[in-house]
């Protein structure tokens, strides 16, 4: 049985057109490739520091 109140909580207000710019700026665009590059760079810097 569907609980109306619970289901209603799943609906959120839509972003209006004026808010689109802010939403774009706030979007986290970090991807797996970024993480990998970061990890690789960190590991390389560690190696350099050890040597």
């Amino acid at each position: 049985m569907i609980n109306f109140e619970e289901e209603l909580k799943k609906f959120h207000p839509s972003l209006e057109v004026e808010d689109a710019e802010e939403a774009i700026y706030n979007q986290d665009l970090t991807d797996m490739a970024d993480l990998m590059v970061k990890i690789v760079k960190e590991s390389e810097s560690k190696k350099t520091g050890v040597e």
């Binding site: 839509s14 972003l15 209006e16 057109v17 808010d19 689109a20 939403a23 774009i24 979007q27 665009l29």
Partner: peptide, 11 residues
């Protein structure tokens, strides 16, 4: 979801 669509296209 037009605003979401616009966001993706702008990015």
């Amino acid at each position: 979801e037009v605003v979401a669509a616009l966001s993706e296209w702008v990015i």
